[in-house]
Amino acid sequence: MKQKVLENVRDLISLFKDGQKILVGGFGISGTPLTIIDLIAESGVKGLHIVSNNLGDYGMGLHQLFIRGQIEKAIGSFFTINREAVVAWSKGELLIDLLPQGTLAEAIRCGGAGIGGFYTKTAVGTELAKGKEERVIDGERYIFEKAIKGDIAIIRAKKADKLGNLIYHMTARNFNPMMATAANIVIAEVDEIVDVGEMDPEQIVTPHVYVDYIIQTAYKKEGDQYVKQ
């Protein structure tokens, strides 16, 4: 059995390089691999293309990479809450690719499923359809959206077994299962690691085939926030 569980998160640092496209799980701060993001901040790699719904919360998660100037381009659905990102974008310091949330999710799913892209009715006739191929299927207008794949995906799950099977925690699941399928290297940050055989096969959401590395999170929930231990 390949040793996927790493004792020290720092063993992963050499995986991160300038200019990579990194898929990052999470919706707001929920379901975000905070420990791995801290590592990327520490690594100092630059020019990153980040695929994630938004850029974290103030001072946490991807917001850290943003304030350190490590992000060249953000691909996601909702950056309005990241005010500094909006300012940086208007000054030309940050590139943004805005996609409807469902299109973002489906593009990543396709990326992981070997599909080059898909036609969707979402955004037809809007500003977000500009420059995109349109075709009529059964009398309805659709636009083409290209699949998204990453060099690395960093995801957050509740529990892993040592093979890399994963289950998630409530709405912290969000983009994580698709991202687990859509990158060359997949790193899962989890609350709990158990022996193989201890998870119910009927309940596994992400099968181990997708997961390359597993680390224990350094964060703990306290009330309505995550706190570093």
């Binding site: 659905s77 909702f78 950056f79 309005t80 809450i81 990102a85 909006v86 974008w89 943004i96 805005l98 996609l99 409807p100 949330q101 469902g102 299109t103 979402t122 955004a123 809007t126 977000l128």
Partner: peptide, 8 residues
């Protein structure tokens, strides 16, 4: 810079 699920 924000659309979320509105269009879907």
């Amino acid at each position: 810079l924000g659309v979320g699920g509105a269009m879907d």
